[in-house]
Design a binder for these strands. Structure first.
Lengths: 169, 169
DNA sequence: TCGAGGTAGTCGTATCTACAACGATAAGGA
DNA sequence: TCCTTATCGTTGTAGATACGACTACCTCGA
């Protein structure tokens, strides 16, 4: 988003880079910025909603939801880390905080002496149920409401492709 | 993403929530998750690329680009904070780090004794020029490459609407 | 001219994250 | 069995962020 227009800094009368550029790659770069902005702004709004309603923050929700969706509502630490895209070191402390709040348990893996499971506690399931309506309202209000049914289809296919490519090792 | 299917935790044979749901709201919730996953995964990849190439990290790039695009390549601190969606407190320290690296200057605002400008330094412009090719390659590789021209149009319109709504105070 | 209320930026503090190094355990070939 | 190599989760450390309190300064009406 800089580099073309070498002379922009000298030509004081042109104050900004052109926002509309016909090249296809430029279109994608503009889209990327809108993608980042939309993400940051919507996340901020939703986090505010969650905080105000005094329910789980997004990071805790992600952990507990991943456990909820797992077989037997439990996952090995490294699987959980991969599922929610955090490092193992970060997950150790995040899980410790959530465990301290009583929303999950840690259990040794009998089949692997190195391993630990994080397992959803009843209180964690309850917290998910309390949080979800607030979260869902935020998603609808700040995100879904602005998208037509057709756009939802297009976006969904596109994001699936992008995530799949970015996540393969 | 939890709350329906009250009995899921009892019905051990059904291990996961259904991923495909016909309701339109559910489609939007699934889309939201894909949106989050795609964002996190692509950002991770691009940050890795930037780090490996030893150019600016995204947070510094955002600051310097905002300055580059501003009239006279400078912005008041609070304008800059709003432009890149960080708090003023966070921006104070971020700008301090970038200034220490010599990529921007802070200048008092003669018209308002409370105010400070952050102004792009020549070294900052140079850093932008060095970083951009790496960043652009990352965007193309991890994001743009996976989107058709038509999808780019649809996504761009959609994100513009979403950001506009989320950012209005 | 003064004073009340608002705004700008900074800073103390608490959180949270990544990175790298570590001890413990597992897996597999010699 | 022994030994090498890899993986698992944790931890020390450093860096980055948000929140709230604080000072300095501006604005505007009496």
């Amino acid at each position: 988003m800089v580099g073309e227009a070498e002379n922009a800094i000298e030509k004081k009368e042109r104050k900004r880079l052109p926002v509309v550029d016909e090249s296809l790659e430029q279109r994608r770069n503009v889209l990327w910025r809108n993608f980042l902005t939309a993400h940051a702004a919507v996340i901020d709004r939703i986090e505010d909603d969650l905080d105000e309603a005094e329910v789980l923050p997004l990071s805790w929700y992600d952990v507990l939801l991943a456990l909820y969706e797992a077989p037997e509502h439990k996952l090995r630490m490294h699987e959980l880390a991969r599922a929610i895209l955090v490092t193992r070191g970060g997950l150790t402390r995040l899980v410790a905080r959530i465990e301290r709040a009583g929303l999950l348990r840690r259990e040794p893996d009998r089949a692997d002496g190195r391993g630990l499971y994080a397992a959803l506690a009843d209180e964690g399931l309850e917290a998910l149920r309390t949080t979800w309506p607030v979260y869902a309202r935020g998603i609808a209000e700040h995100f879904g409401r602005h998208l037509s049914d057709e756009e939802v289809e297009v976006l969904d296919r596109a994001f699936n492709r992008v995530s799949a490519a970015a996540q393969e090792r």
